[in-house]
Simulated scan of single mutants.
Amino acid sequence: MSALIATSLPLAKTSMDPGASLNDTKTEMEASYAVLKFMESFCLLSSACGMVGNGIVIWFLGFHIKRNPFTVYILNLAVSDFGYLLCIAIETVQYLMQFNVGVQFGIFLFLDLFMYGTGLYLLTTISIERCLSVLCPVWFRCHRPKHLSSIMSALLWALSFLVCGLGYISCSVSTLHNCQQILITIGVLDFLICTPLMVLSGLTLVFRVCCSSHRFKTGRLFTVILLTILFFLIFAVPLGALLLLDFWNYKFLYSPEIGFVLSCVNSSLNPAIYFLVGSYRDRQFRDTLRVALQKVFEEEVNFRGERETASAELEMTTTTQ
């Protein structure tokens, strides 16, 4: 993130009138640095809070709750958010301490995009699977492979690593033109393919639940998934859009930095969403994060168990008759 700042400062300088005095130039440069320092400090604070929240989610979902198809995805999403915030925090500290990042910037940018892409692919898969669970409940309950979530999560991590790794290697050894082409391709994959799929699945899910003549018991996890997708579209998607525009040479003042700050907010918000949804229905906001998570995710497990028990009883009754 710090190296992207260098692209913003020349804009502030070149946008001034030719007759501007040296003092005016110095004042505007100082103002630019002040704005960037504020954004970096805010990003560091947001990252610290988000790492604590996502760390608690990882600990709880990894060791203290029975997993179901969606909590496996949520666990991997928390890991990607934690990794993304950690990279951003390290870059921010380096910038604020005025360390010479040099070659390290390329590595951290690769890790940023790797974690960002993984979160995007996971949320796209979550929205599609949740939509299928409502549109095709019999398949999802009876025919869905048991370890599909774990397999898909591993494949999505690998896909993100390969795509970002290809971009990193190409930008390290190829010409600037080839590097830009590959980064634009990554941006198109993220912003013009995965994001529309996420939106389409989410809208289909909402339409099916709200407009169907049958009553669906959505539960807290349904709300969590929709809110997570909504806030990702609001806070995280602008980063991909701004970077894509930047690669196409449509540069705006502070545009990459604003995108990174918003994406930090998004990765930090998910634990808060889990807590608020887990506490809202009972109006007990004094619950610990662990209790709130338990209400969100164990509700889905219990509801699924009730449906399976009811189906088994129905089959036994039919067989007896």
Rank of each mutant, 00 (worst) to 15 (best):
E306S: 05
L96H: 10
W248L: 05
T7D: 07
A34N: 00
F110I: 00
R220I: 08
N76F: 12
S213C: 00
Q284G: 03
F38C: 02
N76W: 14
V103K: 14
L11S: 00
R208D: 02
G305C: 08
P69E: 11
Y84H: 13
L197G: 07
L77N: 13
E300L: 06
P196I: 07
S174T: 06
L269D: 09
L269E: 07
H143L: 15
E313K: 00
I58L: 08
N178W: 12
R130D: 12
C194N: 03
V199P: 01
F260Y: 14
F285A: 06
R286S: 10
T309H: 12
D17C: 11
S255E: 02
L4P: 01
R304E: 12
F105S: 10
G106L: 04
F252G: 04
T320L: 08
T228Q: 10
L245A: 03
D24I: 03
C164P: 02
I169H: 04
C210G: 00
A6H: 13
F60N: 08
D81P: 02
V52R: 05
Q94K: 15
D81A: 14
G62M: 04
L200Y: 12
V265G: 15
F231T: 15
V138C: 02
I258W: 06
V261R: 06
A312S: 11
F38G: 06
F247N: 02
N249W: 01
F99I: 04
A89K: 07
I56Q: 10
Y254R: 01
V296T: 10
L226F: 01
